[in-house]
Design a protein around this nucleic acid. Structure first.
Lengths: 208, 208
DNA sequence: TGTACATCAGTGAACGCGCGTTCACTGATGTAC
DNA sequence: TGTACATCAGTGAACGCGCGTTCACTGATGTAC
């Protein structure tokens, strides 16, 4: 891993896993400067390699950015999964708390890494080579299934629930990370308020 | 107005209102290519003027983009105000319908002009010279005041209502315009679903 | 009422650099026989 | 078990262009007297 992350020095002529090293370097740049700050030449230099070497692994910049954005989304999804894992139990109350934890983790991750968050959802003219793993959307839907299964959420709302839930976390994250509008105050208050609002919007009542 | 919008030809040596012409041209470019597609040289050419002429009116590109973004936000706010104006009456039901119309107009405008919407909220390293007029945030708050005044929304939720409402429209617009996540289906269904969800989240019951 | 002069708003040409991308090349690695 | 050769993954140098920005300039406009 130190070969991949250190970058500047390299023992062998061949790198080992240049693709991964470029993505790792891209993640670091994106973290500081956002998606526009991803410059292929810098990533190559950071990996201890000449710019054109990148073209052995990615057809063009767009595909490299797509891979970096995917890595960012997977970090977000990991944060959500970890948050869900901290909640024990399998009743309706646990399901509701798990659901809230996922949403809170989403927004908190976005606030903590605003430029990486922007990178995760930046529009790119290229497809990632594989599906996201883990996938945030899947994690959300598992939590919603659990809410229905435990009777904490009405079945009638199941169909539109993903969009409503996603709208709220995505919207709040956008508000708190971007210069969207004059939304002041403590982010944690906003998160708590949003969690309660989602419970009302989805009619989640965790009567065990 | 034809001098401002046509661009290519100009009778007098002096332009008339180059600043406005540059912003108008910027709005057109942004509409097609988004905030990144705003290039100063093109806007100048479109206004029938040499690139450096722009520097008589804006200190640098950032300030020009800020003015264009503001113009985009004001268009959005106008769409919201117009939607509100179509709803007659002053009871709780009317207030609720007006509120829903505002949110619907926001999302619909964003869907109709996705790149202009992105431009409206693009981060810029410059302040616009004046406040937005009309201002979307103000329009929202007027509608919320009306909901409270008519008793359609509980006073306790008034404080957090702007953030919740804004989160939902901003979030849904982001979902439907960006390549955010696998949210398929009819946008109008999503808007209707969101409107209902906001009513539940803000406990709006329009018992006249 | 006309002239002098400051001021404002354009022109023209060029700078410079960031950055993706190409291309012919060379070093390392693995596989056939 | 060693040698020949294809293949893969790097190197080095350069191209080229999009685009903001600068600078000395000049034409038009308005105001003082």
């Amino acid at each position: 891993m130190d070969i991949l992350s250190s970058g500047s020095s390299r023992s062998s002529y061949h790198h080992g896993d240049l693709a991964a090293a470029l993505v790792a370097a891209g993640l670091r740049r994106a973290r500081e400067r956002g998606p526009e700050g991803i410059v292929l030449r810098e990533l190559a230099a950071s990996a201890g390699v000449v710019p054109s070497a990148a073209y052995r692994h990615f057809p063009d910049r767009a595909h490299l950015v797509a891979a970096i954005a995917q890595a960012a989304r997977e970090r977000l999804a990991n944060a959500m999964a970890e948050a869900a894992a901290t909640v024990e139990g399998d009743g309706g109350t646990a399901a509701a708390r798990r659901f809230g934890a996922i949403g809170g983790a989403y927004v908190r991750w976005a606030i903590g890494e605003p430029r990486l968050y922007a990178t995760a959802f930046t529009p790119v003219d290229a497809m990632p080579p594989r599906p996201d793993e883990p996938n945030a959307w899947t994690i959300l839907n598992v939590a919603l299934d659990e809410l229905v299964a435990t009777g904490a959420m009405p079945t009638e709302l199941r169909a539109e629930a993903p969009m409503i839930a996603w709208t709220m976390v995505h919207g709040l994250a956008g508000l708190l990370t971007g210069a969207a509008m004059p939304v002041a105050g403590d982010p944690d208050d906003a998160i708590v308020g949003m969690q309660a609002a989602v419970l009302r919007a989805l009619e989640i009542h965790a009567a065990e």
